[in-house]
Nucleic acid binder design. Structure first.
Length: 607
DNA sequence: AAAAAAT
């Protein structure tokens, strides 16, 4: 008994008619018939696709709503001016009548767990069998730096504070994940940290818990009184708007009833609402770089009280595209220097040259790498197929078609398709819709509203296929992504790692399929190596390409020959980079092969 | 060459 979107599409095709059927009849036609039917069937299918697309906004409430309560409707116009800053800072400037005392007392804190409970009940998903934590005893972990604080085994061992402990329970986190076991005590000890841990391994909580706990202790700190300027104590930066939203949502849960106020700021959304939130007081500011720079230049935010700086996807934040902005924020505004603040850098991948850059921001830091066992790549079955550029579309539809027939993992699974360009994303989305595959797309040329809508309709299964550029490659935690297709492979193996990390999360299995052809030669070697290390079957033809690339010139890849994932502390790397045993433990799996569906349900302490 | 990120 299947409950996938395919069924509902079939059902509506078979009759009842008035639902938003994607495909009135089978719009998808096997490749060998496609030319013939295109002319006669395409118009109808296209019309259906348009109709559905048009109906989507109607189903979803206002913009910016949904999973991002901040922009949603709970914000009544008439209480928009209730609180005033955080007692310490706004001091009644700009015409605010000081009614409340202290921070934001006037407003009831929205319970961020409400939705979760409702969702859980409606899904009836009580499969909390948990992750196989025993396997984690074997996880290879490397720490380096001076006087590294020892790891903990339970949350109870750490004094995070009562309120935070309660939230951890509400989140149903039973035991800390490996990265949390190490990173939390290191951070609580006040140390700077550079942490490499697998995608989906609980990084967000790993840096949020110590920050929230630290701020709970320091809430009394006096902040300057500058009208309309916010003085956050912690700053969390991430490379995409959606990721910042996600971090904000999680941080709200962790900080519920702790008195710690979390605000998010990012581009593409009206700035006024964000300004209002900032005026109400902020302890933890989650932001994307561009909008933050804007706020800093308007002097609506000052970084002079920053005690904690966290960079999520830190390697991306410091790559060529972002580095100048990050330097500006961290080094050229009023943020306290390393040593006067605590800096936490997290990513699943950390190339050496980026580590070198990053060390500018750190003071006597601890390097932490949590190995591969139990991380998502062990849970992801990786396949590579040789597909000519001209065959990609039909091949993808064949895959999707087969998936629809068989059900990819028992339940409705979502499929995330990565392409290289924004135009390519639009084109492929259109192509899929026209052929009866319910797809949405997300990329940086779409409005923020469209991006959030696409993500939401994907998450909810309205469009169980999402075509995406790398905007969706990192950090996003989308439950039930069963299949990641690299329609166009990235040029960088790290990007591949992040992309496939959108599946196989929180201990669930995932499948990743890549389309490889002559234009991906430079990836042959690193991809073959990666797959081999993950105990995946490497096709012979790929091995041949890899061998050719090895001395042919293709391999200017950063971590060539080094240990996979995260990598080693570059401070230790005195040319001998044997790295081998580093991730040894896996020894053939322990998780079985792909195909199991979604067994465990420990909600995401992961990422 | 591309993507992301402010207006």
């Amino acid at each position: 008994m299947r409950t996938s979107w395919a069924d509902s599409a079939d059902n509506s095709a078979n009759g009842s008619g008035n639902s938003n059927a994607w495909a009135p009849r089978a719009a998808y036609v096997p490749p060998h018939l496609r030319n013939r039917t295109m002319s006669s069937e395409a118009p109808a299918a296209a019309a259906a696709g348009t109709a559905v697309a048009a109906s989507l906004p109607a189903n979803d409430r206002v913009n910016h709503g949904g999973s991002i309560p901040h922009h949603g409707g709970y914000f009544k116009a008439d209480n928009g001016r209730q609180g005033y800053g955080s007692g310490f800072q706004s001091g009644g400037g700009g015409g605010w009548n000081g009614r409340g005392a202290g921070r934001d007392r006037g407003r009831r804190e929205v319970n961020p767990f409400e939705n979760d409970e409702a969702e859980e009940q409606s899904l009836g998903e009580q499969e909390n069998t948990g992750i196989n934590f025993e396997a984690y005893d074997d996880i290879p972990v490397e720490t380096s730096g001076e006087n590294v604080p020892p790891p903990v085994n339970t949350f109870a061992e750490i004094d995070l504070g009562e309120a935070l402990n309660q939230n951890i329970q509400r989140c149903k986190y039973v035991k800390p994940t490996p990265v949390q076991r190490y990173a939390i005590p290191i951070s609580l000890a006040g140390r700077d940290l550079m942490a490499c841990a697998q995608t989906g391994s609980g990084k967000t909580a790993a840096f949020c818990f110590p920050i929230i706990s630290g701020i709970m202790r320091e809430q009394y700190v006096q902040r300057p009184r500058v009208a309309r300027t916010a003085f956050p104590l912690a700053l969390i930066l991430s490379p995409t708007r959606e990721l910042s939203c996600q971090i904000h949502d999680e941080a709200k849960k962790f900080s519920y009833q702790t008195g710690v106020k979390v605000v998010v700021a990012y581009g593409g959304a009206p700035i006024n609402q964000q300004l209002r939130e900032l005026e109400r007081g902020v302890d933890i500011l989650v932001a994307t770089p561009g909008r933050l720079v804007d706020l800093l230049e308007r002097a609506r935010v000052s970084l002079q009280m920053i005690r904690y700086l966290a960079l999520d996807e830190a390697d991306r934040m410091l790559d060529m595209g972002f580095e100048p902005q990050i330097r500006k924020i961290v080094e050229q505004m009023d943020m306290p220097p390393p040593g006067m603040r605590q800096t936490l850098l997290f990513s699943a991948t950390f190339p050496k040259e980026i580590q070198r850059l990053a060390s500018d921001f750190l003071a006597s830091y601890v390097f932490l790498a949590v190995g591969r066992v139990g991380s998502s790549t062990d849970l992801i079955a990786q396949r590579v197929e040789y597909v000519l550029e001209s065959d990609k579309r039909s091949h993808l539809m064949d895959l999707l078609h087969a998936q629809r027939e068989n059900g990819i993992s028992g339940k409705q699974g979502l499929t995330l398709v990565f392409v290289e360009t924004k135009k390519g994303a639009d084109a492929l989305e259109h192509c899929l819709c026209v052929n009866g595959f319910p797809a949405a797309s997300i990329h940086g040329d779409r409005t923020q509203q469209e991006r959030e809508l696409a993500l939401r309709s994907f998450k909810t299964g309205i469009t169980p296929i999402l075509v995406a550029t790398d905007v969706a490659a990192r950090g996003l935690d989308i439950p039930r992504v069963a299949h990641v297709v690299n329609f166009d492979l990235p040029n960088d193996i790290d990007d591949y790692v992040h992309r496939i990390g959108r599946t196989g999360r929180a201990g669930k299995m995932g499948l990743a399929t890549a389309f490889f052809n002559e234009s991906n030669l430079s990836l042959a070697k690193p991809l073959a190596d990666l797959m081999q290390e993950a105990n995946q079957e490497v096709p012979a033809w790929l091995t041949r390409y890899a061998a050719r690339a090895a001395y042919g010139g293709g391999n200017r890849n950063r971590r060539s020959g080094g240990s996979r994932f995260g990598g080693r502390d570059f401070r230790r790397d005195n040319s001998t980079n044997k790295g081998t045993d580093y991730y040894g433990g896996s020894g053939g799996g322990g998780y079985g092969n792909y195909g199991g569906g979604y067994g465990q349900g420990v909600t995401s302490a992961w990422d």
